[in-house]
């Protein structure tokens, strides 16, 4: 299998704090990878490394055979990495459609002059862009709420809107930070279906951070376990459940797993 994304000995320190140490990791095409671990294990830090909010102190991050250590977050979006945030991060006072529009790669390609002298052709172009956004919203099931303010959506739909926003960037790798947080079991079940469906429909690789072990076992092809900034295990759901290190981190860890 091809490796889309690869981390080699990636570490990051904040002052004296070793947030992540020597992480080796790869994301292969056609799979859903889950990252689990107790609170403070470094999961979100890992996401921030992948999306360019932090830069690694050492090690290399390779995406499509290209080292991307130094790429800025907006540059990583352009090469196909998109994300959602732990607590849905939306433009709360803007509509659902606007929240997706802003991420459309064509949305900000207008020059000042084109914006001022708005020709018929530009208007058509805008309508087409908006239409594409509507299509993506349809895929996540939010197309009936285009003009609703994002802040007034129920929490579950805010998470879906975040996913739509990431998808509209035409990403190839989608990072989901605790997509099921705050959902009830029924919503979680739907979410699993939705993630599977989107992964197929848009032909993207998905990496997700999740607390809900049941959901993880259900959805992921492969699982990586982090604890205290170190990778302690990797494998299929069945393998992880048998792994003694994981069990001890799970039972003996100072933090709960929710």
């Amino acid at each position: 299998m091809d490796e889309l994304l690869k981390l080699e000995k990636v570490s990051i320190r904040f002052g004296g704090l070793h947030a992540l140490t020597d992480i080796d990791l790869s994301v292969r095409t056609g799979e859903i990878l889950a990252i689990i671990g107790p609170n403070g294990a470094g999961k979100t830090t890992l996401f921030n490394l992948l999306t360019g909010i932090y830069r690694p102190t050492s090690g290399t991050i390779t995406y499509k055979n290209r080292v991307i250590n130094k790429l800025k977050p907006y540059e990583r979006v352009k090469i196909g990495i998109a994300r959602t945030f732990q607590n849905a991060r939306l433009l709360k006072n803007m509509t659902v459609l606007e929240n997706v529009l802003v991420a459309h790669p064509q949305c900000n390609t207008e020059s000042v002059l084109e914006a001022i002298f708005l020709t018929g052709r530009r208007r058509e172009r805008r309508a087409a862009i908006a239409q594409e956004c509507v299509e993506v919203l349809k895929a996540v099931g939010l197309d009936h709420k285009l003009d609703v303010l994002a802040g007034s959506l129920p929490y579950g739909e805010q998470r879906l809107l975040e996913m739509a926003r990431a998808l509209v960037t035409r990403c190839e790798l989608l990072l989901l930070d605790e997509p099921a947080a705050g959902m009830n079991p029924a919503e979680k079940k739907q979410l699993v279906e939705k993630i599977r469906q989107l992964s197929r429909e848009f032909n993207i690789e998905i990496v997700l951070i999740e607390h809900d072990i049941g959901l993880i076992m259900n959805i992921s092809d492969r699982i990586v376990v982090l604890d205290h900034g170190v990778k302690i295990a990797e494998g299929s759901a069945a393998e992880i459940q048998q792994n003694p290190k994981v069990i001890s981190a799970y039972l003996g860890g100072e933090d709960d797993w929710d």
Partner: peptide, 15 residues
Amino acid sequence: LTIREDETLAQSVGI
């Protein structure tokens, strides 16, 4: 407006 509201978010959608 996106930059004004949340610069990290703006960067994360490619701005």
